[in-house]
Amino acid sequence: MTATLNIGFARASLETKLFFRQRDAVIFTFSFPIILLVLFGSIFEGDLEGTGITVAQLYSAGLIGAGVMGVAFQNLAIGIAIDRDDGTLKRLAGTPMPRAAYFVGKLVSSLVLAVIEVALLLAVAVLLFDLELPTDPGRWATLVWVLTLGLAGAALLGIAVSSLPRNAKSAAAVVSMPYVLLQFISGVYIPFTELPSWLNDVAAIFPLKWMCQGLRSVFLGDAGAALELTGSYELPKVALVLGLWLVGGLVLCLATFRWTNRGEG
C-alpha cells in the first residue's frame, strides 16, 4: 500500500512534468476556459433578475466546473488513450509497478492541474468581473468538497472513456464530444432555465451539472438560490450524485480498462 502510494506519487510528479513540457497543451488547457470567461463576461453584462448577481459571476462558477472537468475528464481520457497507443501502458504492464500506482499518478497530477486552473479562473473572475470570494469558511469547505468529489468522479469517468477511442488519433474527437455536449446541457454556457425539461433530466444524470450547482452555491450565495430550478442549491443531493459517480466511475474503470489497444489484447 505504501509502496503503491510512493510509486503513485512518483508517477504523478513525472506526469505533471510531462504535461508542462508540452507547451501547446499547457497553453490550450489552461487558457480555453479563461478565454471563454473573458468572452462571456464581456458580452453579457448586467444583473440577473434583480438578485444583484452578475452574469459574469454566473459564468465564473460554471466555467470553474467546466475547467475542472476539462482537466480531469478530457485531458485524462485523451492522455490515457495516447498512453495506450504509444506503448506507455504496455511497457508499464510489463514491469512490477503496482497497477494502481498508474491511476494514483493520473489522479494526483489531475488534481495539481485542477488547482492551478481554479486559481487562474478565480483570479481572472475577481480582477475583471468583481467576483467576490466567499468570506464564510463554510463556503470554502463546500468549494473544497465539491471540487474534490467532482474532480475524482470526472477523472474516473475520463479513465473509463479512454477505452472508447480505437487509437490516439481519434481520441480527441471521441472524448471532446461528450465533454462539449455536457457543458451545453449542464448550465455552463446556456442558463438551464432555457432548456427543455428532458434535457435538464439528461444533464442531471451526469456530474458536471451537480458540480456547477455546488460551485454556484459557493460564489453566488443565498441570493442566487432563487435562480435554481428548485429554488435551492440542493447540496446534499450534489454530494450524493457526485459520490455515486465516484463509485460508478470506479466500477466502470475496473470493468472497461484495457492495457493495450483493441485488437491487440
Binding site: N6, I7, A10, R11, L14, K17, L18, R21, Q22, D83, D86, G87, T88, K90, R91, G94, T95, P96, M97
Partner: peptide, 30 residues
C-alpha cells in the same frame, strides 16, 4: 515481473522526459 525484463518493439512513449529521468523512474519499480 521483477525478474523478467521486456524490451518492446514499438514503444514510443515519454518523449519529453530525459534519459536519466526515465531510467531513474523505472528503477523505482524494482
Amino acid at each position: 515481473r521483477a525478474r523478467v525484463g521486456i524490451v518492446l518493439q514499438t514503444a514510443n512513449d515519454a518523449a519529453e522526459l530525459t534519459v536519466r529521468e526515465t531510467v531513474r523512474h523505472f528503477a523505482r519499480y524494482y
